[in-house]
Amino acid sequence: MSGFVPVIESLLDTDLYKFTMMQEILHHQPETQAAYAFKCRNTPERPLAALQAELETQLDHLCSLRFSEAELAYLAKLRFIKSDFVDFLRLFQLQRRFITITAQGEDLDIRVVGPMLHCMLFEIYVLSIVNEIYFRQVPQASALAIGRERLKAKLNELNALSQQAMPTNPFVFFDFGTRRRFSKVWHAEMVGILVKQAAPYFRGTSNVLLAMQYGVTPIGTMAHEYMQAFQCFGSRLRDFQTNALEHWVREYRGDLGIALTDVVGTDAFLRDFDLYFCKLFDGLRHDSGDPYEWGEKVIAHYIKMNIDYGTKQLVFSDGLTLAKSIALYRHFAPRTRTGFGIGTHLSNDCGQVPLQIVMKLVSCNGQPVAKVSDTEGKGMCEDENFLNYLCDVFKITHR
């Protein structure tokens, strides 16, 4: 194809938690059918519908890719990745028939429907592709120059922190920017700079390909779709969170011990996060709501469970900047371990207004699922009756 520049050139160019969730589904719910829907939470400066033709071509290319033996060997070296899952990936190829795109006015309606094992990897690739072809419309050289200057300023912030960081609970952060990056070229350059210049604070990236290329730790455990899927997996709806956490514990047996708290809100999560789970999980991840209130609630919960919260980790990942991360660190580090997953502020701080795009699970095995969240506008459900029922079961209010 003349002039065609692929966005995705390796199936490892995605976030680690896609593989960890996929492995659990393979082992325990391989027959699951799923549907995912794309959503842009803000108003783009340019119509997304104009991207449709290029997006179709990019998806055709994406669905031609296979994992290489070198990539599979890298995954196999991760101690929590099992050999049968690697064998499955050796045969794996995304199927073009499972994803459809239609223009809805100036917006895009992107849907992925089919076996969950063959659909769940689409999410990060689709978001990365939409971002990149959208931002190709702006002057690249000037945008990258802005990105480099702003990254230099962030490195200066880190240098200032070195005089104040606490040795017992050091400041650590990770790159979580794959899904909303300005471009894959800038993402790779940015991570490379952090590897060289942000030690010892920079501890890894969620992007598996970049982790492999730069020899850093791939970061990630679970996302909302994993917890949401258990709303349809046979247990009472009231028990879906405990069922999901129990399956995770059995699959990973001590590895990947950070749980996500806001699928039906933190209060409802903590009611299910009993002494058993408090002891088994290494910590919790914040992704919506006020981060200070969340952290205090989590610490209070550990105290209530008679757990030494200083041994646990609070991981923050909701719309973080480096300055916000440092402020949260100063607040919580005297008491417990922290970690910060920074996304758009690292991978798409190039002078453009970032797209706030997501692709969420909306049904599973023919039944609706919901994400309620602790922040207005971050929830997602396509069935109002199910959403109301879910909220009634958990005694919560949807936003």
Score class of each variant (00 low, 15 high):
M190N: 03
M190R: 03
M190F: 03
M190Q: 12
V191Q: 06
G192N: 07
G192Q: 11
G192K: 11
I193E: 14
I193V: 15
I193A: 10
L194R: 05
V195P: 02
K196S: 14
Q197M: 10
A198W: 13
A198T: 14
A198D: 13
A199E: 15
A199Y: 12
Y201T: 01
Y201I: 01
Y201L: 07
R203K: 15
R203C: 13
G204A: 05
G204F: 11
T205Y: 00
T205R: 01
S206C: 15
S206G: 14
S206L: 07
N207Y: 05
L209M: 03
L210D: 12
L210S: 01
L210M: 05
L210I: 09
A211M: 04
A211T: 05
A211S: 15
M212Y: 09
Y214S: 04
Y214H: 15
V216S: 07
V216N: 08
V216W: 09
T217L: 13
P218L: 05
P218I: 10
P218R: 05
I219F: 09
I219H: 07
I219S: 02
G220A: 08
G220N: 08
G220P: 11
M222K: 10
M222E: 10
A223H: 09
A223E: 01
E225L: 02
E225R: 01
Y226Q: 08
M227T: 10
M227R: 06
Q228G: 01
Q228C: 06
Q228K: 14
F230P: 03
F230W: 11
Q231M: 12
Q231C: 05
Q231S: 02
Q231E: 14
Q231D: 08
C232P: 01
F233T: 00
F233G: 00
G234M: 00
G234H: 00
G234V: 00
S235F: 03
R236Q: 15
R236G: 10
L237Q: 03
L237T: 06
R238C: 00
R238N: 08
R238T: 02
D239G: 02
D239A: 10
D239I: 02
F240W: 03
F240H: 14
Q241I: 15
T242W: 06
N243T: 15
N243Y: 08
A244W: 12
A244N: 13
A244P: 09
L245H: 07
L245G: 09
L245Q: 11
L245I: 11
E246T: 14
E246W: 06
